[in-house]
C-alpha cells in the first residue's frame, strides 16, 4: 500500500466514527430532548431508564472521532475548533451537564425534577453545539497561512441555523424511534409527533442544501458538475424515497421499520455531505491531503488503532444487545 492512500483510509475511518456517533448518541440526545417536553414522572423515569447503561460507550465515539481527527489531520482539529470556539464549548458544556445531571437524577430523591430539567437542557445544548459545529464547518472557515483568521461569529449563517434546527428535530425523531422500540409505549399521539418532526427535519435539511452554495461555492459547482451530479441527485432521490417510506411505516405503525428508516436517512444524508465536499475537509481551502499528518504517523496510527476499532464495534454491539428489550437492570 502506498502512503498516498493513507489520508483516504483515515477519512473513511473518521467518517464511520462520526456516523456512529451521530446515530448512537443522536438517539440518546433525542431521548434527552424528549425529556424537556412536559410529561408525567413515570414517563420521565422510562425516558431516563432508556438513556440507560450505554450513554458512556455511545458518547465515547465523539471522543474517538475527535482524537483520531487530531491524529490523522491535526490542522483540521486545531483550526476547526479554534474557529468554532463557541459551538465547541456549547457542545462540551452540554455533554458534561447532561451526564452529570443524569447520574445525579438517578441518585437523588427530592431534587429529581431539577436534575431532569438540567439533563434535558444539557442534551439540547449538546445537540445545538453539534449543529453549529457542522453548520460552521460547511459554511467555510477563513484561514491565513495555516491559521484561523476569521471572527468569533463566522459560523452564524443561515445554513448553520437550518442545519442546527434540522439536527434538533432529527434527533427528536431518532430518540422517539428508540423509545418506541425500547419501551413499547406506543401512542397515537406519539406517532403523529414522529411524523411531524421527520417532515420538519427533511424540510430544514433540504433547504440547508439549497442554501449552502451561498457560503461555500464548492457545493454549488457540484450540483451541476457532471461527475458529481448523478450521485448528488440520487442521494436526494434516496432520501425522498426513504422519507416517503417512513411516512408509510409510521402510518402503518410498523415499530421495527421506523428506527431503521430514520437511521438510513441520516446515513444517506451524511454521504451526501461527503460527496458534496470531498476531498475538502476544511472547505473551501484544505483537502484531506493538505491536512494529513506525516505518513509515519498515519501508518503507526493505522496499525495501532485500526485493528482495535472492529473489536470495539463487536463488543459494543454485544453489550447493547445484552441490555436491549430489558427493563429490569439492577443498579
Amino acid at each position: 500500500m502506498t502512503t498516498a492512500w493513507l489520508p483516504i483510509v483515515w477519512f473513511c475511518i473518521i467518517g464511520l466514527e462520526v456516523v456512529l456517533y451521530m446515530l448512537l448518541d443522536g438517539t440518546n440526545l433525542g431521548v434527552g430532548l424528549l425529556s424537556l417536553l412536559p410529561q408525567s414522572d413515570k414517563r420521565r423515569l422510562v425516558l431516563m431508564h432508556v438513556f440507560g447503561p450505554m450513554w458512556d460507550a455511545n458518547e465515547t465515539w465523539l471522543l474517538i472521532a475527535a482524537a483520531t481527527t487530531y491524529g490523522a489531520f491535526p490542522i483540521v482539529f486545531s483550526v476547526a475548533l479554534n474557529a468554532l470556539y463557541i459551538p465547541a464549548m456549547t457542545l462540551g458544556a452540554g455533554l458534561i451537564l447532561r451526564v452529570a445531571s443524569y447520574e445525579f437524577y438517578a441518585h437523588t430523591q427530592r431534587t429529581k425534577h431539577l436534575w431532569a430539567t438540567l439533563f434535558g437542557i444539557g442534551s439540547l445544548l449538546a445537540t445545538i453545539g453539534l449543529g453549529l459545529l457542522l453548520g460552521g464547518l460547511l459554511s467555510g472557515i477563513r484561514m491565513t497561512r495555516g491559521h484561523f483568521s476569521g471572527g468569533p461569529f463566522d459560523w452564524a449563517t443561515l445554513v448553520t441555523f437550518l442545519i442546527t434546527t434540522g439536527i434538533v428535530t432529527g434527533f427528536v425523531v431518532l430518540g422517539y424511534a428508540h423509545m418506541v422500540r425500547q419501551s413499547k409505549i406506543v401512542s397515537k399521539k406519539g406517532f403523529e409527533r414522529i411524523l411531524l418532526y421527520s417532515i420538519l427535519t427533511f424540510a430544514l435539511l433540504a433547504s440547508a442544501t439549497a442554501v449552502v452554495p451561498n457560503t461555500n461555492y464548492l457545493f454549488l459547482s457540484r450540483w451541476s458538475d457532471p461527475r458529481y451530479m448523478p450521485i448528488l441527485w440520487s442521494v436526494v432521490g434516496l432520501i425522498a424515497a426513504s422519507t416517503a417510506l417512513l411516512v408509510y411505516a409510521i402510518h402503518k405503525r410498523d415499530t421495527a421499520l421506523v428506527p431503521w428508516l430514520c437511521n438510513t436517512i441520516f446515513i444517506i444524508g451524511f454521504f451526501g455531505i461527503v460527496v458534496g465536499t470531498f476531498p475538502y475537509i476544511l472547505p473551501p481551502n484544505i483537502t484531506i491531503f493538505d491536512a494529513a499528518s506525516s505518513p509515519t504517523t498515519q501508518t503507526f496510527m493505522l496499525w495501532g488503532i485500526g485493528p482495535i476499532l472492529p473489536i470495539v464495534l463487536v463488543y459494543n454491539y454485544y453489550i447493547s444487545r445484552l441490555f436491549r428489550d430489558d427493563d429490569s437492570y439492577e443498579i
Binding site: 465515547t60 482524537a67 483520531t68 487530531y70 491524529g71 490523522a72 504517523t297 496510527m301 470495539v312
Partner: peptide, 9 residues
C-alpha cells in the same frame, strides 16, 4: 494527536 488517538480508542 496520535497519542490522544490511542488514549481514546
Amino acid at each position: 494527536g496520535n497519542i490522544l488517538g490511542f488514549e481514546t480508542t
